[in-house]
Design a binder for these strands. Structure first.
Lengths: 226, 226
DNA sequence: TGAAACCTTCAGGAACTCCTCAAGAAATCC
DNA sequence: GGATTTCTTGAGGAGTTCCTGAAGGTTTCA
């Protein structure tokens, strides 16, 4: 299966940059548009497999774009981006058709998780949703983590952190990388959050022998590949 | 695969020189630019495989350059160079999308390590991340060193030193060369640091027979190629 | 053989990194 | 709206790392 093609329609430069970079890194082909009009044209020219659509665009808004696309027979699923308080209820209904939404600010890992789920549901991706390292399994579709027979109860941030570490098994990840991917882009605490969460993850995941999450002093953290 | 081509955009002569020399010695093709404008032109003329970009440039800054490049469809990964005290929020987000950053002052080995990892991740290099001499293996991606089955626990400086020696196996390296590559460019202690670290490395790596790290009296040190 | 040059090792203090805990703030659930 | 869970911050303390300097070995060469 070739790279899935994703159209990103977002007017804020910084956010568009983060999204595009994150998606490319994860192996997607990305096309960007800064306005609704450009977005429509781009989608008509070469239909994408998925569209990421800010609902608050100057000019034509996200809903309207989506409606027009559907009218033209473009069925690619949409992931809407919306501000926290605004219009969530307007979007609720849209998830029925396989679309989904994300509230700003979000983290790269959150975005990727949605994108994977939606692509999978629409049959555009066969990528497995289950990661495993040692006897720890993380099932994205079910959003469930287990160690051996035992189901682990992780908080949302713990889950994203573990997911990021596991999907990069065998590689050291610096604190900066972890912050950038697991925490949302508006978080700017220069603090020990990462350490704190690694610590609590270790407590829940357990140490089975010599510890799943290794500290690489002066560099970062690593989970060994099997 | 041909030599990877690296564009260095840095206004400080000394630093640019150190970087370019280090990269060339490691076998890369280097193009230099002293301003953001020149950097953009150079990248547009003949797209590089990787860009090293100072964030604090007079005129257009590093972030802006990066954004414009991406807009033009130039996807080469970027290694940003930043000052230690740069406000945290500007540093956030730099590792998204396969990019990375380095805080000044850094050592040449540190820079090379980043460059290799980033090139590898972007598929522009098939160079293995694993060096081996005798039964000692050094895995850059995992940042792990082992001798036989045993994992060795090295400090950051010991690791950089060993890496430099191993990647130049078969060649004598003078104390001056070692200082220049392993210690950051602002370090000016003319002391016995190198000897001290060679000593502690030998203790950890062990001597398995006739010693991995050979002293070449009056000249420097050498690790023999397999 | 003896002196000079060179190399190795060790100990100690300053600086730094990492882990954990506890408490307040924020979000979420019922 | 109150209770619960989750997130973030900050501080303390253990442990590590780095550099220096000094003592003692080894090699070289006249």
């Amino acid at each position: 299966m070739p790279k899935a093609r994703i159209l990103v329609v977002e007017d804020e430069d910084n956010i568009a940059f983060v999204i595009a970079a994150g998606l490319r890194m994860a192996g997607f082909e990305v096309v960007e548009a800064r306005t609704g009009e450009d977005g429509l044209r781009a989608a008509e020219g070469h239909p994408p497999d998925l569209i990421i659509l800010d609902v608050m665009l100057p000019g034509i808004d996200g809903f309207e774009i989506c409606r027009r696309l559907r009218t033209e027979g473009i069925e690619a699923p949409v992931v809407f981006l919306t501000a926290r308080d605004a219009t969530v209820d307007r979007i609720r209904g849209l998830t029925i058709g396989g679309d989904d939404y994300l509230v700003k600010p979000f983290s790269v890992e959150e975005l990727l998780a949605r994108v994977r789920v939606v692509l999978r549901r629409s049959g555009k991706s066969h990528e497995s949703q289950v990661l495993s390292c040692d006897d720890v399994m993380l099932d994205d579709e079910a959003h469930r983590v287990s160690r051996g027979d035992q189901v682990l109860h992780l908080s949302p941030t713990e889950y994203k952190l573990l997911r990021f570490l596991m999907s990069n098994a065998g590689r050291v990840l610096s604190r900066a990388q972890i912050l950038d991917h697991v925490w949302d882009y508006s978080f700017d605490g220069e603090s020990t959050v990462v350490e704190t969460f690694v610590s609590s993850l270790r407590k829940k995941v357990g140490t089975g022998g010599r510890g799943l999450i290794k500290t690489v002093r002066g560099v970062g953290y690593r989970i060994d590949a099997d």
